[in-house]
């Protein structure tokens, strides 16, 4: 299964990038901590602990943010958090994929998922790189428009989530 191999690879990259980040700043306890987290995550995956992926993803994300505060190279953290996201996503996807009845269905679902994940990852990396590297001077008007757009987008998300929660399921009377 490609997804499983990719998951372990992503995990390795995430931990490796973070260890490198901490090592470059000479924070050796941080390196040991990240290494230990990586090992626990792998162990949890092997032993099929349900909670492990989410917990480790949360911890690695926070550690990625913290290592930036000590002026570690930002590209390493970008790689780390993106790889952690992939590992986290794939761990749940593999769990769902195991329920697929035939290998053919599993292959189809896997291909669709990986394609979409790759797209999101590449887009995320590009945007993140742009955000870190590019410096744009915004005037008040520009900032105001962007702020308005962000607010509108946030309201849309909230409205959509609320709509989904309130709508009755098929076959059930509305409350």
């Amino acid at each position: 299964m490609i997804a499983r191999r990719l998951q372990y690879l992503a995990l390795l990259i995430a931990c490796g990038a973070l260890i490198a980040g901490y090592a470059l700043r000479g924070i050796w306890p941080g390196c040991v901590l990240v290494g230990a987290i990586g090992l626990i995550w792998v162990l949890g995956l092997v032993l099929r602990w349900q909670w492990i992926s989410s917990t480790m993803f949360l911890v690695l994300s926070i550690l990625s943010g913290l290592v930036l505060l000590v002026n570690a190279p930002s590209y390493l953290e970008v790689i780390a958090i993106t790889a952690a996201l992939i590992a986290w996503d794939l761990s749940y996807f593999i769990g769902r994929l195991e329920k697929a009845r035939t290998a053919e269905i599993a292959r189809m679902l896997e291909a669709n998922h990986l394609r979409r994940l790759a797209l999101i990852t590449v887009a995320g990396l590009v945007l993140m790189g742009a955000a870190i590297l590019l410096r744009i001077q915004l005037g008040f008007a520009g900032a105001f428009i962007l702020g308005g757009l962000a607010l509108a987008a946030l309201l849309q998300v909230v409205a959509r989530l609320g709509y989904q929660r309130e709508r009755p399921r098929p076959g059930q009377p509305p409350k």
Binding site: E77, L85, D89, G124, M128
Partner: peptide
């Protein structure tokens, strides 16, 4: 800003 930028792939996801 770098820490905030780390949230971009997650937001995109």
């Amino acid at each position: 800003g770098g820490v905030i930028a780390l949230a971009i792939p997650l937001c995109l996801y």
